[in-house]
């Protein structure tokens, strides 16, 4: 398969089961909502090193309290982790941020307590409010009050969707990745957890060092072409990866589809995807099937 002369490899991205949620962070103005969201989703690129993956889904106009808001998606491998990480990050990054409030953005029967845990910070002065069947906590803080919903919906989600952009040079590959990110960010229900949505240090799941479980993906490193069994065509001098987490497979597939189309520009030799032969992940996102669908 080719798009704009770019070869789309007949392969698949191997993705994993995760637990995900959506938070709505509001504030007096968009600046402070974004400040809190940025801090909350910082150092959340990969569960391998960060214990969670998170990103900003987008700015939203209609919020529960009518203030400017930002939607954040948050993923972890287990339910228990999700509850723990949410309490940590909402407590440290949202509650601390001036004028913010934090609401559940995912209607789901499965829920974890967030405000229900953070309320203890109020030291007995916290106030509960029940409205429309939802419980909120008003926690007194030096600036006034922090309003946080008691429980947040969670659902089975998908982490680690990906594709690789194999380009002739660094500049054109970066341009292709930026184009892909721009359109992928418009897809609801997904985030691209890495910096600017792009990864340059893709990994394999082994290492010569016993203490390390993941190491550089040498088959895709241009500087190692002469030393290892490479997966790179001769014209390729740069590879960038885009990793996708989503609330469901359909959203990840849609992001993959629009991303690959946008990344297929002159100077890109091939689009591939990262997998482990189908042995580890629960989901296989076949590039050809997604693009034909």
């Amino acid at each position: 398969m080719q798009i704009n002369g770019v070869e789309i490899e007949d392969t698949f991205a191997e993705a994993f089961k995760m637990w995900g949620t959506r938070l709505i962070i509001t504030a007096r103005n968009a600046k402070w909502a974004m400040e809190a969201a940025t801090k909350m989703t910082g150092f959340a690129t990969s569960v391998i090193g960060c214990k969670c993956e998170a990103g900003i889904e987008g700015e939203i106009e209609e919020t529960p309290d009518g203030q400017p808001g930002v939607s954040v998606l948050f993923f972890t491998p287990s339910k228990k982790d999700l509850a723990k990480r949410l309490v940590e990050r909402v407590g440290q990054c949202v509650m601390t941020c001036p004028t913010t409030a934090c609401f559940n953005g995912l209607g789901s029967p499965e829920q974890v307590a967030v405000g229900g845990q953070l309320r203890y910070f109020g030291d007995g002065f916290q106030i509960s409010k029940l409205w429309d069947g939802r419980r909120f906590w008003r926690i007194p803080v030096m600036e006034g009050e922090f309003l946080v919903e008691e429980r947040f919906g969670i659902q089975r989600s998908v982490g680690g969707g990906n594709f690789l952009i194999l380009g002739e040079g660094a500049d054109v590959t970066l341009e292709a990745a930026e184009r892909a990110v721009e359109v992928m960010e418009q897809v609801p229900g997904i985030i691209l957890p890495f910096p600017g949505g792009v990864v340059r240090s893709g990994s394999k799941t082994s290492s010569k060092y016993k203490f390390l479980h993941a190491s550089t993906n040498d088959a895709f490193c241009p500087t190692l072409r002469g030393l290892v069994e490479t997966d790179l065509p001769p014209e390729v001098n740069c590879v960038l990866e885009i990793v996708i987490d989503g609330l469901d497979v359909a959203a990840v597939e849609e992001a993959t589809r629009v991303g690959i189309r946008a990344a297929s520009i002159l100077g890109i030799q091939r689009i591939s995807a990262g997998n482990y032969g189908g042995t580890l992940g629960q989901y296989q996102i076949h590039l050809h099937r997604v693009l034909e669908g």
């Binding site: 529960p64 009518g66 203030q67 429309d132 909120f136 008003r138 006034g144 009050e145």
Partner: peptide
């Protein structure tokens, strides 16, 4: 104090 209670916005909008 004199302040803007966020929870009240939620209620009033509802």
């Amino acid at each position: 104090c004199t302040y803007r209670p966020t929870f009240l916005r939620l209620l009033l909008i509802g």
